[in-house]
Write a protein that binds this DNA or RNA. Structure first.
Lengths: 224, 224
DNA sequence: CTACAGCATCAAGAATCCGTCAAGGAACGA
DNA sequence: TCGTTCCTTGACGGATTCTTGATGCTGTAG
């Protein structure tokens, strides 16, 4: 289910939009101001952000800028202002799309579909095979020698990030940011603990891993 | 330079847009109808398509659909029709963005920037080949004669800086500043130690290096 | 021929990083 | 409510990496 973070200060509009989106099977979180938006973006880990530029506390442009310091998640901007200026500014600091009020709900839905479609085909093939491991990214399943393996949510999230970038180095900061959020970039001990757990579950010989490789001082790498 | 395929049947508008885009250092190809658009998209290999929906021969929606059968290049739709329907239809068959006429040129430029920013990280040609050395800057890997080589963080950082500026001299101060920080600009002995280590790991004959060249009195240079 | 400067090499102690274990606490479902 | 699962946190030994100083090499100038 696609997770949407809706940032909207007008309670009536927020309610209406959330209702419609939920009826289309989106998982919606609502934030009422910029502060809450930044907090929720890092805690709820949405797939897309729908952001109203007119917020009570901080400028919407600033919210976009803050988000873009640590994440590439798609941001769709809503705005009553019809001026070119805010439109250009929003897109330039990293927004992906812009919808002017008044807008039809169908247009917003179409843009949501377009935004999520863009992030979906990150790696086309969703089943990755590495030795006797089979990792299905779409279905969120892992098996070893045809036996299903249970992973906790955090374990899975970590594995997913590494597998999507298989073959390449993923820095510790990248992993921590992706899985735990930008506030945890320094908690490298989390990685130690979870990598050990993943290795115990996935590797034939956890003490000499063949897939979950440590790049000392830099980060980790998933090898197929 | 970013290549733009502009699909626009109105000659006046096409001229005006092409002129503006070229003044902003885009490489513009103009197609006057849907057929030409499809042909040019496959021959000119643009980075982005700007497509007017109102074409003389085929429906713009069909053009998008055809393009999407073989390419994921960003498509920005222009349209005089202000109806929700064509907007939704265009986005749903795979357009990335939609701009309603009349639009400001600044808005189009902003959307172009947003579209190219999305594809940018894919294009980074990051593999450098130097003799039997293969250096993948994105994946942070080095191999010699197809054998993987382990580098420590500092070794890698140093090599990365030199490879990114391959062929040109990199002064000692530049290297020290990049890798160890501005406070270490005088610690030239670090360079001696680490260059020796890199040569031992990367060069066939470390005592007569072919890639990691010393420029006496100045600095070092990476040769491919 | 000798002195010297600049660079290469080597080795060893210091600092940092990694894997592992275990325990306490939070969240969740029955 | 209770029990289970999952997440967080701290500690420790061992391995890796960084730093530092000493020593060797080479070409140039006096």
């Amino acid at each position: 289910m696609t997770r949407v973070l809706l940032v909207e200060d007008d309670p009536a509009l927020a309610r209406a939009l959330a209702l419609t989106l939920r009826s289309r099977r989106y998982d919606v979180t609502v934030a009422r101001d910029g502060g809450a938006a930044l907090r929720d973006a890092s805690s709820a880990r949405p797939d897309v952000v729908v952001l109203d530029l007119g917020l009570p506390d901080v400028d919407g442009i600033e919210v976009i800028r803050s988000l873009r310091t640590w994440t590439q998640m798609p941001i769709i901007v809503l705005s009553a202002r019809d001026g070119q200026r805010s439109k250009v500014a929003a897109l330039d600091v990293g927004a992906d799309d812009y919808v002017s009020k008044p807008f039809g709900i169908e247009e917003l839905l179409a843009r949501l579909r377009a935004a999520t479609r863009r992030i979906a085909p990150e790696n086309g093939e969703s089943v990755v095979i590495a030795g006797d491991l089979v990792i299905d990214l779409a279905a969120a399943r892992v098996s070893r020698s045809h036996v299903n393996i249970r992973l906790t949510p955090t374990e899975w999230h970590l594995l997913e990030v590494m597998v999507r970038r298989r073959g390449t180095l993923v820095t510790r900061a990248d992993l921590l940011r992706e899985v735990w959020g930008p506030a945890y970039e320094k908690q490298t001990n989390y990685l130690r603990v979870y990598l050990a757990q993943l290795r115990r579950k996935l590797e034939a010989d956890p003490s000499s891993p063949r897939h979950l490789i440590t790049e000392a001082g830099l980060g980790y790498r998933f090898e197929a």
